[in-house]
């Protein structure tokens, strides 16, 4: 009972935080410096790890596809398989998971520390709503950066697949055929669906991390607990949302 109550409270809190933050949207042009700073922060903490991971995910996809398809001499479809898996599913989900680990944890730690050491209270006494300067720029920044990160993940993953497909002995698929496969099978719609998913996951990861950070009370131990909680909630949310958003997108 208490658990359910807790979950509902979190849910309501996240919603309120979202509405309150976007109520300050008109102040965004005045905060462009903060917005750019957040974009860079998200970009340079997440991009390297997204690049490495998507490269290897693309590679292993090509490897697995090549291994399974060689039995039926279907190597020509490796490009389609790698391309679609990445665009529709793996790039957005993986980017969001890395975002939760790299950025979500950092945000919840920073905001929790500010809350525990009364910096948030100080903002309130200065009539500076914490939602305006702490949450809004981060939410907008992730909406801007998530497509960039996801498209990079797609491209790097495809490249990883191509290199493996061409150079592994039992596959030896010509790069032209590989990319032809991507071109023929991956439609704009598939990439768009992936970007919509990424946008939704990224937004919720940041929103939840801000929310969990700002409702921290207590001391240093609670800061650590908040970081863990933010990451765990984010991961669950990504995978649950993944199912529902994917099935919703299929209906359109």
């Amino acid at each position: 009972m208490k658990q359910i109550n807790n979950i509902l409270e979190h849910f309501g809190g996240v919603l309120i935080l979202c509405v309150r933050s976007f109520a300050y949207l008109p102040s965004l042009p005045l905060q462009w410096r903060r917005l750019i700073e957040q974009c860079f922060l998200i970009g340079y903490t997440t991009f390297p790890i997204v690049a490495i991971l998507s490269f290897f995910i693309g590679s292993v996809l090509a490897l697995q596809a090549g291994y399974s398809l060689q039995a039926v001499a279907g190597q020509d479809f490796i490009g389609a398989l790698v391309g679609l898996s990445l665009a529709r599913e793996l790039a957005p989900v993986m980017t969001a998971i890395l975002l939760a680990g790299r950025v979500g944890s950092a945000i919840s730690a920073e905001l929790a520390t500010m809350k525990v050491y009364q910096e948030v209270d100080a903002l309130v006494t200065m009539n500076i709503p914490p939602e305006r300067i702490l949450v809004l720029p981060r939410l907008v920044a992730i909406l801007l950066m998530m497509p960039v990160l996801t498209i990079s993940a797609n491209l790097i993953g495809w490249l990883g697949g191509a290199i493996i497909a061409q150079n592994i002995e039992f596959i030896q698929l010509d790069q032209r055929i590989y990319f032809q496969g991507i071109q023929n099978f991956v439609k704009f719609r598939d990439i768009l669906d992936g970007l919509i998913k990424a946008e939704i996951f990224g937004f919720f990861v940041i929103l939840v991390s801000c929310h969990v950070g700002l409702r921290t009370t207590g001391g240093p131990r609670e800061i650590g607990a908040s970081v863990t909680r933010a990451v765990v909630i984010s991961l669950i949310l990504i995978l649950v949302l993944d199912y529902f958003v994917t099935s919703a997108l299929m209906k359109f």
Binding site: M114, Y117, E119, D121, A122, T125, M126, N127
Partner: peptide, 19 residues
Amino acid sequence: TRRELSMALVFQAGALFNS
């Protein structure tokens, strides 16, 4: 009320913005 007032609080521990 707080928006209409001009009031400042000096916190016991300072509450400075550490960043």
